[in-house]
Each structure stands twice: as structure tokens, then as C-alpha cells.
Design a protein around this nucleic acid. Structure first.
Lengths: 84, 84
DNA sequence: TAGTTATTTAGATAAATATCTAAATATTAA
DNA sequence: TTAATATTTAGATATTTATCTAAATAACTA
């Protein structure tokens, strides 16, 4: 839960998540969308992966990232129990 | 949205929120539950208040804190659109 | 094989943050 | 009005984090 909140506590990472909602993208495509260096985007992707919010798969020289929404169940439930 | 994620990105603050789910509490009662100084708890409460997750009301020499779950709607919707 | 492209790792730095102690403020009670 | 209690503000510090550039790794292509 900690890693999930941490991952979502950054505007860039939330935007990456929203991008990946539309379609899978490789690291370079993601980086293009931001005015941030590729290493920084790579770091953000790493944090999203640690939180299990995205998965990555090497495809040739590219690395394709996908959104994993199953992990959001936990978050959803946590919020719902608060609202009771 | 930023302040909400920020507020929730801390274990102590999430625990405070869970405490307030059960009942309203004053700052001292909340602080008692943690091995953290009162000023630090006060600071956490401030961050929760900035995010509108809690409201506070002065009652005599005490300050009573309450959970505000309405703000969680936004978060809920954000998550739900990701899951689509 | 040598050069090019895609991505990550390493190392550095500035800004944000969680925490503390001490002091200030506000309220109640003797 | 003085003392005690509740809470916040101020100021300091150590840690975390977002970012950068440079270098390393991996895979394709001529």
C-alpha cells in the first residue's frame, strides 16, 4: 500500500498512468510526452513498477510498458472502507 | 488531487484517517496513539486539513478533528476511470 | 564487426519532508 | 490574576526524492 501511494504521489507518474490507460507504450514514447530527461522518466517507471502499477516487457531493443489495474483494487477497497 | 495524494502518502496520516473513521478525536487523543511528538502530529493534521480530508473545530481548549469523506469521491472517480 | 539507437545505471545536487525541541498562544481553573 | 493544560508555530536537522549529465548495457543495422 505504501509503494502504491508513493507511486501515485507525483503528477508525472499519474500522467504516465493515464497515458498507459490508452495503450501500451515503450519507454521512449512515454519520455517524448514530457519535458523531462529519459533517465528521469526511467526512474519514474521504475517506481511505478515497484508499486506493481505497470509491467514491462522487453521487445527487441524497446521496453514496452503496460498498465496493471488489478493492484488498484486494494486502493479502491481502502477508500471504500473509509467511506463505509 | 495533488494535496490529496500527498496527504495519503504517509503511514501515520493514513492511520490518523483510520482513527477518525471510528470517531471524532481531539489533537491530544490522536497524538496519544503514536510514538511521535505532538508538534509532529499537529503538522500531519495540518497536511490532512490542507487536503480537506479532515476538518477541525475548536471546542474550548481542545481542537476536535473529523474525517471528511466527500473529498474521496474525486479519488474514487480517478481510480475508476483508470480501471474503465 | 562497427556504428547507431533504446534504455538503464551511477553519481551528484537541490528541494521537499518528517521529525525533534523550545517557545508562543489560547483556554480553563484555582 | 496566576498556574496548568492543549495546541500550534518556529527553527533546526537528517532523510527522501525528483531531477540532471555522463556512462554503461543491450539490440539492431549497414
Amino acid at each position: 500500500m505504501n509503494s502504491l501511494f508513493k507511486a501515485l504521489n507525483d503528477e508525472t507518474r499519474r500522467q504516465i498512468v493515464e497515458l498507459l490507460k490508452e495503450r501500451d507504450m515503450n519507454a521512449g514514447e512515454i519520455a517524448e510526452r514530457f519535458n523531462i530527461s529519459k533517465p528521469s522518466i526511467s526512474h519514474h517507471l521504475d517506481i511505478l513498477r515497484q508499486a506493481n502499477l505497470v509491467t514491462s516487457e522487453k521487445k527487441g531493443q524497446f521496453v514496452e510498458y503496460s498498465l496493471n489495474t488489478t493492484i488498484l483494487e486494494d486502493l479502491l477497497n481502502w477508500i471504500l472502507t473509509l467511506k463505509k
